[in-house]
Amino acid sequence: MTEYLLIIVSAIFVNNIVLAQFLGVCPFLGVSNKLSTATGMSGAVCFVITLATVVTYLINKYFLVPLGLTFLQTIAFILVIAALVQIVEIVLKKISPSLYQALGIFLPLITTNCAVLGVALNVVTKEFTFGDAAHMLNLGEATVYALATSLGYGLAMVLFAGMREQLAMNDVPKSFKGLPIALITVGIMAMAFLGFSGIV
């Protein structure tokens, strides 16, 4: 149980996917102008990252590894993710039109969100140390890790969108307008998150 808690704290705060691992920065900068869109995107990313990690984990374990095809990980995973996003879009449209309205427009963008492929690849290639010994994640841990990581993504995104809404109302020097001031803000946020390092 403590192990899961460690995974969650580490993935959300210590190794925050955007602020410490630099994954999914493009959509992070792209759709964080408004709090409402940021929340929608975070929800969609959460859903897809968790689902994609579980599916790619299983494909890797029961298909690529036994056949000695691990060098095909990149190409297999991106195809699986692209297909998954399509399926999620179709299913969502059918069963929950209201959810589709909220998340729908973000879904096509997610295929090329490197956070999804990044987390999927991390889970199957990297050793983790939560608790004592270093080991590869099992399916349960991988799921929790993916979910926590995407929650970390949501947290960073929502915090940042809140700040950006305030920024937009301020008088920013001309050359700093738009992205530059946003990047500098993220830099300061990343510095704050650095304070979490070492607690796990």
Partner: peptide, 11 residues
């Protein structure tokens, strides 16, 4: 031998 360091695995 791999253990958990400050920032992650230390091998």
């Amino acid at each position: 031998s791999t253990v958990g360091g400050f920032g992650g695995p230390l091998s």
